[in-house]
Nucleic acid binder design. Structure first.
Lengths: 107, 107
DNA sequence: CGGGATCCTACCGGATACTG
DNA sequence: CAGTATCCGGTAGGATCCCG
């Protein structure tokens, strides 16, 4: 059933785009690039996002090995999200996107 | 009416992502990065795309100043699509995406 | 606090047929 | 050849409410 992805076989660019495709993927990665954060912290930092979307995207990013989810067994639940090496390696991509944006999207 | 974009104010990364957001944007840009092409050529090169989508995305990319549309006043219509400087400048982004994909998405 | 379970809608993207 | 015009389904994404 999940064989749709097999269509995008060869091209690594497209596959990368799929990983970063979600509307909130980049904002999340960007936030985590600065610092490890808890769930509510992220929800506050990323303006406009709602609970469900944050959960969903975080889960996706986790499945894609970009985000690491660390649960602390405490009474008031505490979960920290951080970037894996794979996630941190996206820095170069973000930098290039930022550069391009600054150069050509200057409103 | 088109004030949705104003929400994503500051972050150039997100704005870049919006420009490249369409499902076929990258495949198109990638194809044009190699060589200027005509409409039907693109339709053939980009596997899986259909007429409507190609038209739509090309129009969007043109509006964003990434793609240049050149019409030849001939009897069998001839239209060539190429990348603008702004479009060519996306090379760095694509390269980084490709690198990351190759490094971390090796199936 | 960190989510899960629902409900709902817009609109993205696909398939075709048609036109100058 | 280079599109335009329709029709249509799936789903990404949003708004709550609730629970351990």
């Amino acid at each position: 059933m999940n064989e749709k992805k097999s269509k995008f076989t060869d091209c690594p660019i497209t596959r990368t785009a799929e990983v970063l495709g979600g509307k909130w993927s980049l904002p999340i990665i960007f936030a985590l690039m600065k610092e490890t954060s808890r769930f509510k912290e992220l929800e506050r930092k990323i303006e406009g996002i709602n609970t469900r979307m944050l959960v969903k995207e975080l889960k996706q990013l986790e499945e894609n090995g970009i985000v690491l989810r660390k649960v602390y067994a405490e009474v008031p639940p505490k979960v920290e999200y951080s970037l894996t090496e794979k996630g941190k390696a996206l820095k170069s991509v973000l930098v290039e996107m930022k550069n391009w944006g600054n150069q050509f999207l200057t409103v």
